[in-house]
Nucleic acid binder design. Structure first.
Lengths: 268, 268
DNA sequence: TCACGCCGTTGACCCAGATCAAGGTCTACG
DNA sequence: CGTAGACCTTGATCTGGGTCAACGGCGTGA
C-alpha cells in the first residue's frame, strides 16, 4: 500500500516554494486544447462534450501568475471566469484595520469568478505558481444560456462550495486551535489527492510528503488564528508523531487516524 | 416616510415568541396559488412566468412548522425543496460533543433544500412559526431541466448564498464579540426589511421595534459565542443608547450609524 | 563570504471571552 | 395565586489563544 521508496524525496525544486509535487509537473504551453486537460474531469467544463468545448474555445485563454500575484481585487471589475489548472488560490476578505480572513481556497479544477456579476466580493491571489484557464465572462455567460449542461455543472459546483463554506463556518465558530489545524491538514491531504486522482502523477499516499499550498501566515488567515498559534499546533502534532515536517511547507502524514481524532468530529 | 403610528405596537401575540411583526401577518390557507404570493418576487420561482408556475403547481404543497420543530436532519433523506413563506429557519451543524454552529439563517423568500443530492449536510429547524412552500424534490429537479429560467435563478441564489456565507467566515474568524453582535443586529434589520419590502405590511423603519428571529442561545450559536457574551454585548449597546430592547426578542434601532461604526467594517 | 530579510519557532505574559454561579423576569399551568 | 421552568442578565473567575519579544535557518544578493 505504501511505496517503499516513499521517503526518498526526489526533489526537483520548483520555484523554491513548493518543492515536492505529488502530481507530475504540468507541461505549460500557450493555451492548449481541452483534449487531455489534466483537470477537465473536475472542472466546470466536465459536463461539455466535444461540440460544447468547441464553443468555449474562442473565449479561452491560459494565464500564468507568480506566487503572491493578485488575480482579482474586491469590488473591482473582473472580466473573466476561470478554472484553476495548476497551483492554489486564496480568496481573501479583509477589514479596514487590516484583519484578514481567507474565505476560500482553490485547488486545481476549482472555479474562480462570479458569473452574473461584474466583480467579486474578495481579493483573489496566487498562493503559489498558478495557471488559469480563463474565459471571457460575457462569453461564458452567453454560453451558460446555450449549454444547459454547463449551467447545471456550475450549479452543482456552487452548491458544493456552499456546503464547504458552511463546514468552514463550523470550524471557525466552534473548533479549538488544535482542531482547526488538524482539520486543515486533513483537508489539504484530501483535496490534494482529489486534484491528482484523475490523472497522471504518482498518487500521493503513505509516507510521501505533501506540499502545503499555504505558509504559516496564510494558514492563520484561513483558520482565524495567529501565526504563532498555528506554529505551536504544528509543533505539537509533530511532537505527538502525528505528522512530520521535512520542511515547513511539507507535511508527512504519520498517523491519519490520530490526526482525525484531533479534529473534534469523531465522538469518544 | 415613517408612520406616525409606528410606535403603536398593535400586538396580536402570535405564539408568544414573536410579538411584533413589521410585515402583516399572513393569511394561511391550504396551499394557495402563486398569484399574490407575498414572497414570490424574492423566491426561486420569481423567474417563472404563469406558464412555468403552472408546471410547478402539481408538486407544490404548503407545510407548517411550530417553533423548534425539525424540518430536516443532517444526512437523512430529504425529499423536498422549499421556499420559506413565513418565519425563520436555522441551519445547524454540530460536533459530536454538542458544540453547535448555525451555518445559515433563512428568511421569507429564501430557499431550503439541496437539489441534486438526497440529503442536506445540516439540521434545519424552525426558529419561530414557519410556513414552507415545499416542492417534491424529484419534480423540482425535473423542472430544472425543463425551465432554464428556474435553473438560472437557483444558480444566482446559490451564488448569493455563497457570498453571504463567505462574509460570515470573516465575521466568525476575525471579528470581536462586539463587532459580531453589531453586524448581526444590522443584518437582521436589513433582511427583515428586504423580506417585507416587496409587499404589504407597514414598512419597518425608524422607531418601530424589529422582532429578533433568534433567542440568545441561537444568536450565540450563529455568532460563535456564548449566551452570556451575547447578552453582555446587547446590554452594552443598550447602555450606549444604540438600541433599545422593549423585550429581549425585540430591538429598536436608535442609532444605525453608531451601530454600523461598531461592526469593524468602516475605517477610522 | 557575509549580511540582510523573510519565514518559522519558541517563550513569557496578557486579555477577551469562556466558564461558573446567582438571580431576575415572564409565561404556563395546577 | 403560587410554583416551575424557560430564558435572560449580571458578576466573579479562569484560560485558550493573542500579543510581544527574541531567536534561528535559509535563500539572496553584493
Amino acid at each position: 500500500m505504501v511505496s517503499a521508496k516513499a521517503n526518498m524525496v526526489t526533489t526537483a525544486r520548483v520555484r523554491g516554494t513548493v518543492p515536492v509535487r505529488p502530481c507530475s509537473p504540468p507541461v505549460l504551453q500557450e493555451t492548449p486544447g481541452c483534449v487531455g486537460c489534466v483537470v477537465r474531469s473536475r472542472a466546470v467544463c466536465s459536463s461539455c462534450g466535444p461540440r460544447d468545448l468547441a464553443k468555449l474555445e474562442p473565449y479561452k485563454r491560459f494565464r500564468h501568475f507568480e506566487p503572491g500575484e493578485t488575480l482579482a481585487s474586491a469590488d473591482e471589475p473582473l472580466d473573466f471566469v476561470a478554472t484553476v489548472v495548476e497551483g492554489h488560490i486564496g480568496l481573501r476578505r479583509s477589514l479596514p484595520d487590516g484583519r484578514r480572513q481567507i474565505v476560500g481556497l482553490l485547488f486545481p479544477g476549482d472555479f474562480l469568478g462570479r458569473p452574473m456579476r461584474s466583480s467579486v466580493p474578495y481579493d483573489a491571489d496566487a498562493l503559489d505558481s498558478v495557471t488559469l484557464c480563463t474565459i471571457q465572462r460575457h462569453g461564458f455567460e452567453r454560453l451558460l444560456g446555450e449549454l444547459p449542461a454547463l449551467e447545471e455543472r456550475l450549479l452543482a459546483m456552487a452548491l458544493d462550495e456552499l456546503d464547504a463554506a458552511r463546514e468552514s463556518l463550523l470550524l471557525l465558530g466552534r473548533k479549538t486551535a488544535r482542531e482547526k489545524v488538524a482539520s486543515f491538514l486533513l483537508s489539504v491531504r484530501r483535496r490534494t489527492i482529489a486534484a491528482c486522482s484523475d490523472g497522471n502523477g504518482p498518487g500521493a499516499e503513505g509516507g510521501l510528503p505533501f506540499p502545503l499550498p499555504l505558509g504559516r501566515e496564510d494558514m492563520a488567515d484561513y483558520l482565524g488564528l495567529t501565526i504563532e498559534t498555528v506554529s505551536r499546533q504544528m509543533s505539537a502534532f509533530k511532537k505527538a508523531a502525528l505528522i512530520a515536517l521535512p520542511t515547513p511547507r511539507q507535511v508527512r502524514y504519520l498517523d491519519i487516524a490520530g490526526l482525525t481524532a484531533e479534529t473534534g468530529e469523531h465522538g469518544v
